[in-house]
Design a protein around this nucleic acid. Sequence first.
DNA 1: GTCTATAGCAGGATAGAC
DNA 2: GTCTATCCTGCTATAGAC
Lengths: 188, 188
Amino acid sequence: MKTTRKHLIEATKELLWERGYEAMSPRAVLERSGAGQGSLYHHFSGKAELVSTALDEIGEDMHANNRVYLHSDKPALQRIRDFLTMPRDALRGCRLGKMTQEPMSAQDGLREPMAAYFTELKQDLIGVLEEARQEGTLREDLNLPELAATIIAIVQGGYVLARASQDPEQMQQAIRGILALIDSAERK
Amino acid sequence: MKTTRKHLIEATKELLWERGYEAMSPRAVLERSGAGQGSLYHHFSGKAELVSTALDEIGEDMHANNRVYLHSDKPALQRIRDFLTMPRDALRGCRLGKMTQEPMSAQDGLREPMAAYFTELKQDLIGVLEEARQEGTLREDLNLPELAATIIAIVQGGYVLARASQDPEQMQQAIRGILALIDSAERK
DNA sequence: GTCTATAGCAGGATAGAC
DNA sequence: GTCTATCCTGCTATAGAC
């Protein structure tokens, strides 16, 4: 079946979100996908390549979702707010961000998908912030790459706070805090 | 030796920082500390209790370090800036924050030290922000618990950005971004 | 391409001598 | 209290039939 490979990747994506890389075993992937040992090692050289493929897809999924908010027909600064306030499962954590803290994130083939995701997101944010500046709604003195990095960091840090306390509200607080600061950087 | 227990805890603290919980084996702790199998299971019921003890100490270490910056004799808002810009090993990640993204962070006895650290840090930050408000250097309309959460999230998210890109500068950018926004919330 | 069976090894914990 | 020896389990990968 051509779908066996797809099933393996799907199961891997789920398990990476639930457990991360270290705690995710190929055996668990086989059980969840319904495939046998041989299939995994027929389609992939091992755990690392399987995960690398899954990470690529996760990055694409997330990027596509972000663009729904960042490229709508609303004013640029509103799109930034929409991105910050989009629904997020705070207690599950960021599918990619959480793995940056594991030792595997230094390995070749595994770091790249994470780096690519955050680089693209940052560029998207910078683009929207430039639009806001052109629309005249954003103060001129702000450094846009820095502001973009700040916005991403708030989301990632919000996940950390939420999980530490097991309380999604902690992430919401952090986001409301940055929204208030962005309000004061808005030219009205 | 009474110090065998201490050596076990020290080795655990180091290994948690390097590898996190899932990837840290009791065997590695024994090798690094020079102790034998029996010592570990004499002093602790198992991996979880050993790690719980180590996490408590890590939280205390970090809290003591934070207070150096948050309780200096400088103006309150400057202490916030000092906290944000204190030296950090961006590529190693936060000793506690990184583990909030592991599955173990839901386990009893392991989550508490992380939750306690972030709760105390947030309270400290709120206290300093209240001082700033009393000094008349901070805009009155800002919600202080939200701003405190934002500050913590920036640091935690900065670690994520730095590790994803393997570039400490990404964390610095995020921090400079929030410093600029805080500047605009300062009453001069 | 997919399966079952299994190898080889490391993780986590226990037993029991000293 | 500390040690060495050892158990059981699960992880990662390979072998080889279908």
